[in-house]
Amino acid sequence: RLTVMSLQESGLKVNQPASFAIRLNGAKGKIDAKVHSPSGAVEECHVSELEPDKYAVRFIPHENGVHTIDVKFNGSHVVGSPFKVRVGEP
């Protein structure tokens, strides 16, 4: 089962990169992540390998409000996905 680490749920800033990590815990497959902005825009997140069992997911929010992040592994949502994060002040 995958572990999502260091996902900041609030206090993110517009046009500043945000990232979190995913540990695969021995699982093999493909991570896919997309961020949905409050206006409905959908953007791919950048996924990069940090070490053999750990990946970083990076995105840049372009507007204030609550964004939804879909994180999928081999086509299925990971536990807790979709995640909600707040950009800007509430």
Score class of each variant (00 low, 15 high):
Phe73Tyr: 05
Gly80Cys: 05
Ala41Asp: 10
Leu50Thr: 11
His36Ala: 09
Arg86Ile: 14
Val71Tyr: 02
Pro52Trp: 14
Leu24Gln: 01
Val66Trp: 03
Val85Phe: 03
Ala41Arg: 14
Thr68Leu: 10
Asn74Ala: 10
Val42Asp: 04
Gln8Arg: 07
Pro38Trp: 01
Lys30Trp: 07
Gly80Trp: 03
Pro90Glu: 03
Val66Glu: 14
Ala56Tyr: 13
Met5Asn: 12
Thr3Val: 15
Leu50Met: 08
Arg23His: 02
Arg1Asp: 10
Ser19Phe: 04
Asn25Cys: 07
Pro90Tyr: 03
Leu12Phe: 04
Gly11His: 03
Arg23Ser: 10
Glu89Val: 04
Glu49Cys: 11
Val35Phe: 15
Glu44Ser: 06
Ile69Trp: 09
Ser19Thr: 04
Ser19Met: 05
Pro90Cys: 04
Ile31Gly: 01
Val42Tyr: 12
His77Asn: 09
Leu12Asn: 06
Lys54Val: 06
Ser37Thr: 05
Ile60Ser: 11
Arg23Phe: 07
Phe20His: 00
Gly80Tyr: 02
Glu89Asn: 13
Ser76Asn: 07
Arg58Asp: 10
Thr3Trp: 07
Arg86Ala: 08
Gly80Met: 07
Val79Phe: 03
Asp32Ser: 12
Pro90Leu: 06
Val66Ala: 09
His67Thr: 13
His77Ser: 10
Ala21Leu: 14
Glu51Trp: 04
Ala21Tyr: 12
Arg1Trp: 13
Glu63Cys: 08
Phe59Trp: 14
Arg1Lys: 13
Thr3Asp: 15
His36Lys: 14
Lys54Ser: 04
Val87Cys: 14
Met5Thr: 15
Phe20Gly: 00
Met5Gly: 13
Ser37Gly: 06
Gly80Val: 02
Ala27Pro: 04
Leu50Gln: 15
Val87Lys: 00
Pro61Lys: 00
Pro82Gln: 03
Lys72Ser: 07
Thr68Asn: 11
Ala27Cys: 09
Phe83His: 04
Val66Asn: 10
Asn25Ala: 07
Pro90Lys: 08
Arg1Gln: 15
His62Arg: 12
His62Ala: 11
Pro61His: 00
Met5Cys: 14
Ile69Met: 06
Pro61Asp: 00
Asn64Arg: 08
Ser48Cys: 13
Ile31Phe: 01
Lys28Ser: 11
Ala41His: 14
Asn25Val: 05
His36Ser: 11
Lys28Val: 09
Gly88Met: 04
Phe20Lys: 00
Phe83Trp: 05
Pro61Met: 02
Val4Trp: 11
Ser48Glu: 12
Glu9Tyr: 02
Lys84Gln: 09
Phe20Val: 07
Asn25Met: 13
Glu44Met: 02
Ile69Val: 09
Arg58Met: 05
Leu7Ser: 07
Val35His: 04
Gly40Lys: 06
Leu2Gln: 01
Asp53Cys: 07
Lys28Tyr: 01
Glu44His: 04
Gly75Asn: 13
Glu44Tyr: 14
Phe20Ile: 03
Val42Glu: 07
Ser48Asp: 09
Asn64Pro: 10
Val42Ile: 08
Val42Lys: 03
Gly75Val: 04
Asn74Leu: 07
Ile31Thr: 03
Glu44Ala: 03
His77Phe: 11
Val57Asp: 00
Ala33Ser: 10
Ile22Thr: 00
Ile69Pro: 00
Gly80Ile: 01
Val66Arg: 09
Ile60Asp: 09
Lys28Asn: 04
Lys54Asn: 06
Ser10Tyr: 03
Asp32Thr: 15
Cys45Lys: 04
Ser48Lys: 11
Lys13Phe: 06
His46Thr: 07
Asn25Ser: 15
Asp53Ile: 07
Asn74Arg: 06
Asp32Phe: 01
Pro52His: 09
His46Tyr: 08
Glu9Trp: 00
Val85Gln: 14
Arg86Ser: 13
Phe20Ala: 00
Ala18Asn: 02
Gly26Glu: 11
Gly80Pro: 05
Arg58Leu: 03
Arg1Thr: 14
Glu51Thr: 07
Asn64His: 13
Pro82Ser: 02
Cys45Ser: 07
Ser76Gln: 12
Cys45Asp: 01
Gly11Tyr: 14
Leu24Trp: 02
Val87Arg: 00
Ala41Cys: 06
Gln16His: 11
Leu2Glu: 01
Arg58Pro: 04
Asp32Gln: 09
Lys54Arg: 05
Ser39Leu: 09
Thr68Met: 11
Arg1Phe: 15
Glu9Ser: 05
Ser39Glu: 11
Pro17Gln: 09
Glu51Gly: 07
Ser39Arg: 13
Ser19Leu: 03
Val85Cys: 15
Glu49Gln: 13
Phe59Tyr: 15
Ala41Ser: 08
His77Trp: 10
Arg86Gln: 14
Pro52Glu: 08
Ile69Asp: 00
Ser19Gly: 06
Lys13His: 08
Pro82Thr: 01
Val79Lys: 07
Ile22Lys: 00
His46Ser: 13
Ala18Gln: 10
Val78Asn: 03
Thr3Gln: 11
Cys45Ile: 14
Gly88Gln: 05
Thr68Gln: 12
Leu2Ala: 06
Leu2Cys: 02
Arg1Pro: 01
Asp70Phe: 09
Arg86Leu: 11
Asn15Lys: 11
Gly11Cys: 07
Lys84Asp: 13
Lys13Glu: 14
Val85Arg: 15
Ser39Gly: 09
Ser39His: 08
Val79Asp: 12
Val4Arg: 02
Thr3Cys: 15
Leu12Gly: 02
Val42Cys: 12
Val87Ala: 07
Val35Trp: 13
Thr68Trp: 09
Leu24Met: 11
Val57Tyr: 15
Glu89Phe: 14
Tyr55Ser: 10
Ala56Asp: 12
Lys34Met: 13
Leu2Thr: 10
Val42Gln: 15
Gly29Ile: 01
Pro17Gly: 09
Gly75Tyr: 07
Ser37Gln: 07
Arg23Leu: 11
Leu2Lys: 09
His67Met: 08
Gly11Trp: 02
Tyr55Gly: 10
Asp53Thr: 04
Ile60Leu: 07
His77Tyr: 12
Val35Arg: 10
Asn15Cys: 04
Val78Thr: 09
His36Leu: 14
Asn64Ile: 13
Ile22Asn: 00
Ser6Cys: 14
Ile22Tyr: 00
Pro90Gln: 15
Ser10Gly: 13
Gln8Ala: 07
Lys72Thr: 08
Ser48Val: 14
His62Trp: 11
Tyr55Gln: 06
Arg86Val: 11
Val71Ile: 11
Asp70Pro: 09
Asp70Tyr: 09
Ser76Glu: 13
His46Ala: 12
Ser39Trp: 10
Ser48Tyr: 11
Lys34Glu: 15
Lys34Ile: 12
Asn74Val: 07
Gly40Met: 06
Phe59Pro: 00
Arg1Tyr: 15
Ser81Thr: 05
Pro82Ala: 02
Lys30Ser: 06
Glu44Gln: 15
Ala18Pro: 00
Ser6Ala: 15
Cys45Gly: 12
Pro17Thr: 05
Glu43Ala: 02
Asp32Ile: 07
His67Gln: 10
Val57Gln: 01
Pro38Gly: 01
Pro17Ser: 11
His62Asn: 11
His36Trp: 11
Leu12Ile: 08
His77Thr: 13
His62Asp: 13
Pro52Ser: 12
Asn64Trp: 04
Glu43Arg: 07
Asp70Val: 08
Val4Ala: 01
Gly29Tyr: 01
Phe83Gln: 02
Gly65Ile: 00
Lys72Trp: 07
Gln16Cys: 06
His62Met: 11
Val42Ser: 07
Lys34Asp: 06
Pro17His: 06
Val78Met: 14
Gln8Val: 10
Gln8Cys: 03
Gly40Thr: 04
Val14Arg: 05
Asn25Gly: 02
Glu89Met: 11
Val66Met: 07
Lys72Asp: 12
Ile60Cys: 14
Val85Leu: 13
Ile22Glu: 00
Tyr55Asn: 12
Gln16Lys: 13
Thr3His: 15
His67Val: 10
Glu9Leu: 04
Gln8Gly: 03
Pro52Val: 10
His62Phe: 08
Gly40Asn: 10
His67Gly: 02
Ile31Asn: 00
